[in-house]
Amino acid sequence: MSDKLMIGGKELNSRLFLGTGKFPDNRLIPEVIKKSGAEVVTVALRRIDFDSEEENMLNYIPKECILMPNTSGARNADEAVRIARLARAAGCGNWIKIEVISDNKYLLPDNFETVKATEILAKEGFVVLPYMCPELMTAKRLRDAGAAAVMPLGAPIGTNKGLKTRELVKILVDEIKLPIIVDAGLGKPSEAAEAMEIGAAAVLVNTAIATAGDPVIMAEAFDLAVRAGRKAYISGVGAIKEYAEASSPLTGFLND
């Protein structure tokens, strides 16, 4: 059965997006990408440090992957826009994950600035995937601003706490006709499966894989969990019976 995810005119088979930060050794990344099945891979843009020898992340990412640079480091819309334009100029496609964080305590995204940046970048032809706090009105504004998907957090970034925002994410899934991609906070494959079961179109995982004892095996585990959750969602979860089967106290009057 074909169940492809369409974003920005691209057809994706894998619903697991992979972040590339915090790995103990970048040389693990090609194998992690392979085992995860991920087709969309996130990277960040940084100043080159001319004083030290640095590896280039692109050397570890297969050519056929879609690169999704993020705007990490941006504290407002203008900075995010600047980073996005630089990322595009680097010649790796036009996908951009908008990430605007002006809160250093919890690292929660700034929804207001994120909407502003989305508006500008969508008009410039970017495929915009904004990272946000799950909130319906913001999601609608992002949709109206031209976002290609909406990426609510499952829990504060890097916390591995799981799908703490379940109820709010479910509302986005039900109300927004764009792919809803749970980004940040998912710590275990079962939590990724949970996000997929409630109808998320994909999940983005970084810390949970990068900091696992064996990132390669964990990448595979997430791949399986995401597939399982997706299949559960499209097959329609069975009825939870909460009603009496025989008597009809509420509608008995209709039989009189």
Binding site: E242, Y243, A244, S247, S248, P249, L250, T251, L254
Partner: peptide, 11 residues
């Protein structure tokens, strides 16, 4: 299945 629907509707 009116009764089942009614239980859910009531809830």
């Amino acid at each position: 299945f009116l009764e089942q629907m009614a239980v859910r509707s009531r809830q």
